[in-house]
């Protein structure tokens, strides 16, 4: 068996999710090649070559892939991937965008968002927003798979010494072009891979009050998230949303502040190792999944939390 992993990156650094996907590939077993497609991605290819368990890194460096347009990536990956038994990428918004095109171009099914590998053709994935867990067997000769990064512990980022090979395949479908982007700038860790996440919900009352959470986050080296209610109310931007339709997170510590715990939110965080809930409503469903619950007014509890943390950190 031979497995092609499509690296997730932003043209400046390799995303940790790629290491989780390589771990999923190792669980399948076989030679693992990594494809790095983007623009000016030499350093990323070198980083990928150091990842544990990688056999070869293939590089497609061209402006056509600079903004990860699905039309171009889809054609590239379908062509490069057709000699492999499995094609894997992370189930981030880029992977979710281009991977089904790859499957359609190869006339095979896609298995989305797997959290476990049972065998080379059988995978486990959540359905119904995580309210049911399905074991699925794929019969196509090429398995096209997106991987939920939190389902797999990442392989080591260092220690490997894969060869790096340049590809001169340029696929520009000419169907789409990049217009612009608004990316949130933050020095805090990436929500999807942070070890600690502190999230606010509707109980935060407005966007300014999220500064309280940011101060605590900076103390703990945490990422800041939000519930869908807080995003829909316009307190914070959509990329902070944790939940079924937002980011799926599984940090060591998840602190839910003023979040009631709708199923939609729980689907995005219930695999966290330790969950803390701070909410003034003691009947809030979030307490049913929390390891430590504090029934309190968050506007009193959070400043106290910050003070207590300063004592121990």
């Amino acid at each position: 068996m031979s497995i092609l992993v499509i690296a997730e990156h932003d043209n400046s650094s390799l995303k940790q999710a790629t290491l989780n996907v390589v771990a999923a590939a190792k669980a399948i077993g076989g030679d693992i090649d990594v494809l790095v497609a983007g623009e000016n991605v030499g350093a990323i290819a070198e980083a990928a070559a150091k990842a544990e368990g990688v056999n070869k890194v293939l590089v497609a460096d061209n402006a056509a892939y600079g903004h990860f347009l699905a039309e171009n990536l889809g054609e590239l990956v379908a062509e490069v991937g057709k000699g492999y038994s499995h094609i894997l990428t992370s189930a981030g918004t880029t992977g979710k965008d281009f991977m089904p095109r790859v499957a359609a171009l190869l006339d095979v099914a896609q298995v989305s968002d797997i959290i476990r590998v049972e065998s080379a053709d059988t995978f486990v994935r959540p359905i119904y927003a995580g309210n049911a867990i399905a074991t699925v067997k794929a019969s196509d000769s090429i398995k096209v798979i997106t991987v939920r990064p939190t389902g797999f512990d990442p392989v080591a980022a260092e220690g490997g010494s894969a060869s790096v090979e340049q590809l001169d395949v340029v696929k520009d479908a000419g169907l789409s072009s990049f217009v612009g982007e608004e990316k949130a700038k933050s020095d805090r860790p990436d929500l999807a891979s942070a070890g600690v996440v502190i999230s606010g919900g509707r109980g935060m009352q407005n966007g300014d009050n999220f500064k309280m959470l940011e101060q605590v986050a900076d103390l703990m080296g945490a990422a800041v998230g939000a519930s869908r209610a807080a995003v829909d109310a316009g307190f914070v931007p959509n990329d902070m949303q944790v939940g079924q339709t937002g980011k799926i997170v599984a940090p060591q510590l998840y602190v839910a502040v003023g979040i009631s715990g709708a199923i939609q939110h729980l689907a995005g965080m219930s695999d966290s190792k330790v969950i803390v809930a701070i909410n003034k409503d003691e009947e809030a469903p979030i307490f049913q999944v929390a390891d430590y619950g504090l029934v309190a007014d968050l506007f009193e509890a959070i400043p106290q939390f910050e003070e207590e943390l300063k004592k121990v950190l």
Partner: peptide, 30 residues
């Protein structure tokens, strides 16, 4: 169909933990 579903299970449920009395106890437990 190219995919066959072998089984569907309920997710492992999380047990509710404990309630702490105040922030100091919370930080101590963590």
């Amino acid at each position: 169909p190219r995919l066959s579903t072998l089984k569907v299970e309920a997710p492992a449920s999380r047990q509710a933990g404990i309630k702490v009395a105040d922030v100091a106890e919370l930080v101590d437990k963590l």
